[in-house]
Design a protein around this nucleic acid. Structure first.
Length: 871
DNA sequence: GAGCACTGC
């Protein structure tokens, strides 16, 4: 073994005392502490997390967790489950009487293969922790409209909660006549459950369909379980449980702000706090405190599920809305007097439809968008009071429909806590801060490999592709010199840009006497579950994207992770057996970490989110109920951008252009370009769709590190290259790819282009084309324009409609300075214009990594920029 | 001279 590796963490003789690493017992996730239900004691958790001791925790034999989340792991897990089932059914054949199967499942029904499978899965399901709380969950939602559910990993909440609720009577669809409307409409009947990722939505739907013994999605009209994600909608008329991505639910809200097809919305994985989930929470709060007028007063039940314990903030969030509403009612002080408003609101006029938001608008002196100086929105704040009114049969009355007493408090929120199933993980910290954590990770890997028995793979969390690759070569190098009596090592990198086939290697079992060493980015924290891991090495850092609204610049910097991310990483070691987590930082630095990840809404460009809100009738952005309120600066910057793009009127309300933009699955700038493309001046929809499809997908050009390859790559791509810039180069690439009819994969490989990315481009392109054909903006067989230089100019000018703010001009010293803001910016090395000097540039993205870069660059002329800006 | 992770009728 090489000397370097031996040095500090040498665990062979004196593993703990002499090393830098301290042992810390962590029984946090284990059953040793019985916690009060519905309440998470965070201080207890964090204290346990770091109490020094060396207790060997012996947990009961715990089955592997069954919370199916990823494609890769699902099949394996299902198979495993079946194996276990077979073993179980031999030993414990009888199902206790007390366990009544839902959905009328009995052994006698187990004739069809589907039912047989569902039956087989049943004992496993009922052993999930969540089932012991099934009755509590049902009862809670009979009484209240909002439930907050903390469920630790492996509790089965995502798969079981919808099934637990689907048999409830409030879940049946009802025919209601909307006030002041002749129409009778159907409300409810389906449960929506949102997931942050497509794979999660699809695999959970597949799993739940199996458990319920029903075909999945659109495969049969009788299917009860379906899913809806972008490019893939699989539901039937009978769908009772529908998994969707957060974006899809928001999209549905554009068509029906009252979500009339649903009886309940379950918001899963709220702790991840993407922008979309924050918007959904705001809309849900408005809806549950609004009296459900647009749904014929049929309540919408909302279940908010989270793995971490920000539950009190969520509770306050929902209670606040409710209290604001009750205060608005005055409860004793009737506001019924104004019957004009009553009639205005009981109808389901268009304006009502577009105004599901309500009580947040109390503060009458609202609305200063930074744009708007005219009074507006008052009507809706009046409406806010009206909607919350309690009239005998109102859902928010103090007695529930069954006549049972509601909770004496005004609360409309109930809480529930489900224990997880996580094996204990021992945490080790370094005693000194680590400077070079690639080196530290290397030492730790070899220490573990020598000290710890097999099996037990190692998962290392690093910051990015670069560190993954450098550690990969180091480990591989040292692994060569391992003596023969030590098990072999298999080093596997894992990051998003890695081709799918290379990613798949991580899920394949290691050869005998071999330990897998997985070197991963953040991707392994949430998106991908690797089985077999018993050791985690955590560098405590991650690359985090932060938007600086002042200068409109995205930065991507290495920063310390949060405590909850550290806990999440640690948990990856304890999914199948007790594990160990080596933190390459001191215990003190752990305590300095912030508690939770900064929600995305506080660190991203808000223009798209605000457009989304405006399109759903929320005009008063400042008073929208945000779980975390973005800075006024960020909100104003986004409003200004939307205004400059021509999506808002002078008074800040959404106009026709904005409404169209909101319907497009694109960033606001790209959406604006696409709308411009249909104008007679440009008339280039087809080409713009091709370019936009590329820009809204990960980089299609593979970057091969080695120098020798560089020239080969360049010559292979020469035919695609356009000197006008990256936009036109993308266009020729898409067109060449689309024209390739024999073997597109081979074509992509020949040109060093990511086939996976091109497939994504094709999906987006297909979707946008279909949308435009449907709207008769694009004709099916429009003959493609020849790409003359005049045409190229037209295309670039069209892009300036959305990117006029993303321009920079050449300075005498050869650098570029932004036209707005006068910031220095360099052309990114990945650009075809890298190293070139042109009068001015337009860029797709402005990011700060090691310095300020413009990515996706085309040459423009200053008078075009002036023209676009209307100067 | 360089690429955290997700997502969208």
């Amino acid at each position: 073994m090489p000397e370097r590796v031996h040095v500090r963490f040498d665990g062979e003789s004196t593993p703990v005392e002499a090393g830098q690493i301290q042992d810390v017992d962590n029984t946090k996730d284990h059953k040793s502490k019985k916690r009060k239900r519905g309440h998470v004691d965070e201080t207890v958790l964090s204290r346990l997390e770091v109490t020094p001791s060396k207790v060997l925790v012996q947990g009961p034999q715990i089955p592997p967790e069954k919370d199916a989340k990823t494609f890769q792991s699902v099949t394996a897990r299902v198979n495993k489950s079946h194996h276990q089932l077979n073993q179980r059914s031999q030993t414990q054949n009888s199902t206790p009487e007390s366990w009544k199967k839902p959905n009328g499942m009995t052994h006698k029904l187990a004739q069809s293969p589907l039912k047989a499978k569902a039956d087989a899965l049943w004992p496993l399901r009922k052993s999930l922790p969540v089932w012991s709380l099934a009755q509590e969950i049902r009862q809670g939602l009979r009484e209240k409209d909002v439930m907050l559910l903390v469920g630790e990993t492996g509790s089965g909440k995502s798969t079981q909660v919808p099934q637990i609720l689907t048999t409830e009577s409030w879940c049946n669809s009802r025919s209601v006549t909307l006030k002041n409307s002749e129409k009778t409409v159907c409300v409810g009947g389906c449960i929506a459950i949102t997931e942050p990722r497509r794979v999660a939505a699809i695999t959970l739907a597949r799993r739940v369909a199996e458990e319920m013994g029903t075909p999945l999605g659109s495969s049969s009209p009788a299917s009860k379980v379906g899913y809806s994600v972008r490019f893939d909608n699989s539901t039937s008329p009978c769908t009772k449980i529908k998994f969707l991505t957060e974006g899809m639910l928001l999209q549905e809200m554009l068509r029906d702000p009252w979500l009339k097809s649903y009886s309940a919305v379950i918001v899963d994985e709220v702790h991840e706090r993407g922008v979309n989930v924050d918007l959904i929470l705001g809309f849900m709060r408005n809806m549950t405190t609004g009296g459900f007028e647009g749904r014929g007063r049929v309540p919408l039940k909302v279940v908010v599920m989270s793995a971490t314990a920000e539950i009190e903030r969520l509770e306050n969030f929902f209670e606040e809305g409710y209290l604001a509403m009750s205060k608005g009612l005055g409860l004793e002080q009737s506001v019924t007097g104004d019957s004009d408003n009553e009639s205005e609101w009981s109808g389901i006029s268009d304006s009502v439809q577009r105004n599901p938001h309500v009580p947040a608008q109390h503060k009458a002196n609202t609305i200063s968008d930074g744009l708007d100086h005219s009074p507006r929105g008052e009507s809706s704040s009046v409406i806010g009071y009206k909607l919350g009114q309690a009239n005998g049969d109102e859902p928010h009355n103090l007695s529930n429909p069954n006549g049972k007493e509601r909770n004496k408090s005004l609360s409309h929120v109930t809480k529930c806590h489900i224990e997880g199933r996580q094996h204990p993980v021992t945490v080790h910290y370094t005693s000194e801060p680590v400077q070079d954590w690639v080196d530290a990770a290397l030492r730790t890997i070899f220490q573990i490999h020598h000290k710890e028995p097999m099996p037990g793979d190692i998962l290392v969390f690093l910051t990015g592709q670069e560190t993954v690759e450098s550690l990969e070569s180091l480990v591989t190098e040292y692994a060569l010199s391992l003596s023969r009596d030590v098990p072999k090592m298999l080093v596997l990198p894992l990051f998003a840009a890695l081709p799918q086939t290379a990613q798949q290697r991580v899920f394949q079992p290691a050869p005998p006497r071999t330990r897998k060493i997985i070197l991963a980015t953040n991707i392994a924290e949430t998106s991908v579950t690797v089985s077999g891991v018993r050791f985690v090495i955590d560098c405590g850092k991650a690359k985090i994207k932060q938007f600086r609204s002042r200068i409109g610049l995205d930065s991507l910097l290495v920063k310390p992770i949060s405590k909850s991310a550290a806990i999440q990483r640690k948990g990856r070691a304890g999914r199948e057996a007790p594990g160990q987590c080596y933190r390459l930082y001191t215990e003190a630095s752990y305590h300095e970490m912030q508690q939770n990840n900064t929600p995305e809404i506080l660190r991203c460009d808000l223009s798209h989110a605000i457009l989304t809100m405006k399109a759903r009738g929320v005009d008063d952005i400042i008073n929208f109920p945000f779980l975390d309120q973005p800075s006024r600066d960020a909100l104003e910057k986004a409003l200004l951008q939307l205004y400059q793009l021509g999506a808002l009127t002078d008074s800040g309300t959404i106009n026709e252009t904005g409404t169209q933009m909101a319907k497009l699955p694109l960033t606001v700038s790209l959406g604006r370009v696409l709308i411009a493309a249909a104008e007679p001046e440009f008339n280039c929809v087809s080409e713009v769709i091709d370019i936009i499809s590329c820009l809204s997908v990960e980089n299609i050009f593979l970057n091969l590190a080695s120098e020798e390859k560089k020239e080969e790559v360049e010559s292979a791509r020469r035919e695609l290259y356009r000197r006008e810039g990256d936009h036109l180069t993308l266009l020729t690439t898409v067109q060449a790819y689309a024209a390739e009819n024999s073997d597109r994969k081979a074509w992509a490989e020949r040109h060093f282009i990511s086939h996976r990315a091109m497939q994504a481009v094709t999906d987006v392109r297909k979707q946008l084309r279909a949308q435009h054909q449907q709207a008769q903006i694009l004709r099916q067989e429009a003959t493609p324009h020849q790409l003359t230089s005049e045409r190229a100019t037209t295309l670039v000018k069209c892009f300036l409609k959305g990117f006029k703010m993303n321009t920079a001009r050449l300075m005498p010293d050869g650098s570029y300075k932004t036209v707005v803001g006068n910031q220095t910016v360099a052309i990114h090395p990945s650009s075809g214009l890298f190293g070139k000097k042109v009068e001015a540039i337009m860029y797709n993205e402005f990011v700060f990594t090691t310095k300020s870069y413009a990515r996706g660059v085309s040459a423009v002329q200053m008078d075009w920029v002036g023209e676009a800006m209307g100067v």
